[in-house]
Every structure is written in C-alpha cells, then in structure tokens.
C-alpha cells in the first residue's frame, strides 16, 4: 500500500473531518497521475471537483446585464416614478383617511343596509393557484418556512437561557 498519508486523509475526508487545507492537499495530490488502482475512483472524484471549479459563465454576461438594466430604465420612465415615491407616504395617509371616512360611514349606515350589498374589500379568488396540487405544494413550502424560523427562534432562545444559567453560576 502506497501513500499512507493520502489514505489517512481520504478516510478523514469521508468522515467529514478534513479541514479546507487538507481538502486542497487531496485535490492537489489527485491532480497528478496516481499509480494505485484502488485510488483511481477517488482521483476521478477530486478531478471532477477541480474541473468544476473552472466553470465560468460565457463572456460578456456583465455587459448584457448592464444593457438590460439600461433598457429597463429607459422603458420605465424614472421621473414620475421618483415623484410618486416621495408622494407615497402622503398617498398612504390620504388613503387611510378616505378609508376611515368610508369605514365610519359604513358603520353608521350598516344597520340599515341590506347585507347583500356588502362587498368584500379584496377579491382574493384571483390569487388562487390553478390546481389543488399547486396549492398543496405552496402550503407545504409556507409551513416549512414558518417551521424553520420558529425553530431557529426557539433554539436561539434556548442558547440565551443556557448562557444566562452559566452567568448565574458565576455570580453565585
């Protein structure tokens, strides 16, 4: 058996214990010709990593991006947009007041009103996914996201509590 050092590193690599430096050593070793037949499969693996590192987008991608960007900016006139943006807080406020007035009027008149004339503020139906399958997938993703964040929060809180416990020990 040749290359005992490399074999040891390989074992470590597959146990997921190598450092970035050691992984580099492995790639470098395998970029040379390897005589041991039993090491061949690993050579393919590490050469693959090395070749993949060389992949690049085709030339001129940045130029195309900036071109697209300038096209976007000329096609959507910037000026009215900018004015609208500074106006927006006022618009929101004005909309709120309008909403309020309508709202309070609505409350006043509600009792006399026929329930059938009440209309929903938002037509949600147009935002529904087209198939129940799609809807289920979206629901799953949404639940997954909520779940992940929820757990992140709890584990962070647990860490805090542990830390506080530690501090308590020091203080007593």
């Amino acid at each position: 058996m040749n290359n005992p050092f490399i074999r040891e590193l390989l074992d470590k690599y597959f146990r997921g214990e190598t450092t970035l430096e050691e992984e580099k050593t492995l790639r470098e070793f395998f970029s040379r010709d390897v005589a041991d037949p039993d090491l061949k499969p690993y050579q393919e693996l590490f050469s693959f990593f090395q070749i993949e590192q060389l992949q690049q987008p085709s030339e001129g991608l940045e130029e195309r991006f900036f071109e697209q960007l300038s096209k976007r900016e000329t096609s959507e006139p910037k000026r009215p947009e900018a004015i609208l943006r500074t106006l927006r807080p006022w618009l929101v406020r004005a909309a709120m007041v309008a909403f309020l007035l309508i709202g309070s009027w609505w409350i006043y008149t509600r009792n006399e009103m026929n329930p059938a004339t009440e209309t929903a503020a938002i037509d949600w139906s147009k935002y529904e996914p087209e198939t129940p399958e799609e809807a289920l997938r979206i629901t799953k993703e949404a639940l997954g996201k909520a779940s992940r964040h929820l757990n992140k929060g709890t584990s962070m809180a647990m860490e805090e509590m542990n830390l506080m416990g530690e501090m308590g020990k020091v203080l007593h």
């Binding site: 949600w124 529904e128 996914p129 129940p132 399958e133 809807a135």
Partner: peptide, 14 residues
Amino acid sequence: VYISPKLFQMFGKL
C-alpha cells in the same frame, strides 16, 4: 397567493 378553505378541503383527496 391565496389558498381558500375550499382548496384546503380538496387537499385531503390528493
């Protein structure tokens, strides 16, 4: 995106 109660009812059959 909006998933209506009706859609939720349909999930059981999927």
